[in-house]
């Protein structure tokens, strides 16, 4: 599906990503975890073509390393950016509709009923709030809207950047349930960046741990979750206490 080889991202003199290899297989949820500034977001931005980078990015055998963000969106790679980034002055419905632009074109009249029904069935709350302006939604609802908007674009690969950011634990729980449900139902592969390592490991199939722009560890999530080093670095004491209880 998606193969990344020796990806490097530079911002001026700072090298944010120092040559990583990542693979996303069909139907899988793959996670990138790591602390702030480790370069996770830069990797996603490189895939969707909004940041300059070197290295090879191969999507279904096609080299998209130097493709434009518009071409990449047309291929069905949908990127839900960090911090939700909905269109605040447009209604929920209008936000969702704009998600279709990659296959519908600017003057599109094509029917998007099917996509809309799917998104509303996934997130019934969005249907209730259909006519509300996006800025008036709660954080969790805005995240659902951002994901829903990406689903409108007939995604073949979903990139999620920190979906849990700034949300309450219960909301995070619900959101991750939805994310796994989307993956299970349609087999949509997901590449997710998360700081909430526990959550990320529990829903994903495969995980890369990024430290200072490099992959420090990788493996099946089910294995990593029991790894002592991961536990020490990412879960801290509170997690251990919880586990013992």
């Amino acid at each position: 599906m998606l193969k990344i080889q020796d990806l490097k991202v530079r911002y001026g003199s700072i090298e944010a990503v120092k040559g990583v290899n990542i693979e996303v297989k069909d139907d899988a949820i793959v996670c990138l975890i790591g602390s702030n500034g480790a370069g996770k977001t830069s990797i996603l931005k490189a895939i969707s073509g909004v940041v300059e980078h070197s290295g090879l990015i191969e999507y279904n055998g096609e080299d998209i390393s130097s493709a434009s963000n518009i071409h990449i969106a047309k291929l069905g790679i949908q990127h839900v950016p960090e911090g939700r980034q909905v269109f605040p002055g447009l209604t929920v419905f209008e936000n969702l509709e704009i998600g279709c632009v990659n296959w519908r074109g600017y003057f599109g009249k094509a029917d998007h009923k099917e996509e809309l029904e799917y998104v509303y069935s996934m997130f019934p709350r969005l249907k209730e709030r259909e006519k509300q302006l996006a800025w008036s939604l709660s954080g969790g609802e805005q995240q659902m809207l951002a994901i829903g908007r990406a689903l409108m674009g007939r995604p073949k690969l979903l990139l999620l950047d920190e979906p849990s950011m700034g949300l309450a634990p219960l909301v995070i729980e619900e959101l991750f349930q939805k994310i796994t449900e989307i993956n299970k139902k349609t087999g949509l592969p997901i590449l997710m960046v998360e700081q909430n390592a526990r959550m990320a490991l529990s829903v994903s199939d495969y995980t890369y741990i990024i430290e200072q722009g490099q992959i420090s560890m990788e493996g099946a999530s089910a294995d990593l979750i029991h790894d002592d080093r991961v536990e020490a670095a990412y879960f801290g004491k509170s997690w251990k206490v919880k586990k013992e209880v």
Binding site: Q78, Q85, F87, G89, L90, E97, V101, R149
Partner: peptide
Amino acid sequence: YVGRIMQAAAQNKYAAGLLGVSATL
């Protein structure tokens, strides 16, 4: 639809770019 796309791009160019909206256009 095209007008709303322009509005969206005006409100958040980055997010619109990720959805495949050309900022140049």
